[in-house]
């Protein structure tokens, strides 16, 4: 009886969830790694085929692929714009929202609503806003870029980065608002006694106090960026122009499923996740350092 713990019934209650994790996460995870070291391809249903071990061949193919290089460069551009913009705006807006007394419900709805709306729906309106003859260009008049935003190879990725910032910001404001509830009021009071300006209080009290939340925001923004698919697929018509907005997941989809090289895609997926983990680890060390 003791071997199973004080409440063995807990094993039964959590069994469906445990099975789900095993089938949907653990097994596919192992399968992905296995696939990346083997020659794996889609065979006709029912056919029994060999998937010989090929060592690092798939990884070599991924690392020497120009399309993959470009996708990783694109995602770097994305992150350089998206992560600082997201972190900065989310913190400033959360601080302002936290002190606001009037119109809180309206402000909350306004900032969170892009986050709860389907990407596919808001992509529709961004296509309309940013196309060659769209509202953004009519407002800009002679300053409108040519070629227009989403078909301009220098502007396609930055436009996607701004889109994703707008789309996700509400969630990150929410994270910062939660963190702000835990900043001791005394810190602000003693800073006020010392005669610190509002700006100084923000930098010397708020920013250090929410540092753990900042680490989380940066990591989650990074994961969102690494997962980018819907935006380049729909906003820029499949990562265009000329692959200037292709993302690694888009390349995984094109190579793995459209062109039937799941082993290549699996190796790319493993590398992508390793990349995210390494950057997340470095970020953690940098932000949590005193």
């Amino acid at each position: 009886m003791r071997v199973l713990g004080r409440h063995p019934v807990g094993m039964i209650l959590s069994a469906p969830y445990a099975v789900y994790l095993a089938v949907i996460f653990a097994y596919p995870l192992g399968f992905a790694v296995w696939m990346s070291f083997h020659d794996y391809f889609f065979a006709a249903p029912g056919a029994i085929v060999d998937h010989p071990f090929v060592g690092l061949d798939n990884y070599r193919a991924v690392l020497t692929d120009p399309g993959v290089h470009q996708a990783f460069q694109n995602i770097l551009i994305f992150l350089v714009i998206n992560v600082p913009l997201t972190t900065g705006l989310a913190l400033v807006l959360a601080v302002a929202l936290n002190r606001a007394v009037h119109g809180r419900a309206f402000l909350r709805v306004a900032f969170y609503v892009p986050y709860v709306t389907a990407s596919v729906a808001v992509v529709g309106v961004w296509l309309f806003l940013f196309n060659s003859g769209g509202l953004v260009n009519s407002v800009l008049g002679p300053l409108a870029p040519d070629p227009s935003w989403l078909i301009n190879e220098h502007l396609a990725m930055p436009t996607i980065a701004v889109f994703v910032t707008w789309k996700q910001l509400g969630f990150f404001i929410l994270l910062y608002l939660a963190a702000l509830q835990n900043v001791p009021k005394e810190l602000y009071e003693s800073a006020a006694v010392d005669g610190a300006s509002a700006w100084h209080r923000f930098w010397s009290v708020t920013v250090p106090a929410v540092r753990p939340a900042t680490a989380l925001v940066v990591i989650l923004a990074l994961i969102t960026g690494a997962n980018l698919f819907t935006e380049p697929y729909l906003l820029t018509g499949g990562g265009g122009p000329n692959g200037a907005s292709a993302s690694p997941v888009l390349v995984m989809y094109q190579r793995g499923l459209q062109q039937g090289e799941p082993d290549f895609a699996a190796a790319l997926g493993v590398l992508l996740v390793l990349g995210v983990l390494i950057v997340a680890y470095i970020n953690r060390r940098l932000i949590e350092r005193d």
Partner: peptide, 23 residues
């Protein structure tokens, strides 16, 4: 199980995409 709950939240879905599709 609780460690798994935490781990699952950091495993990006894109790594599972191809094997889940195959399965």
């Amino acid at each position: 199980l609780f460690v798994l709950v935490l781990l699952v939240q950091v495993i990006p879905f894109q790594l599972l995409l191809i094997p889940l599709y195959v399965l």
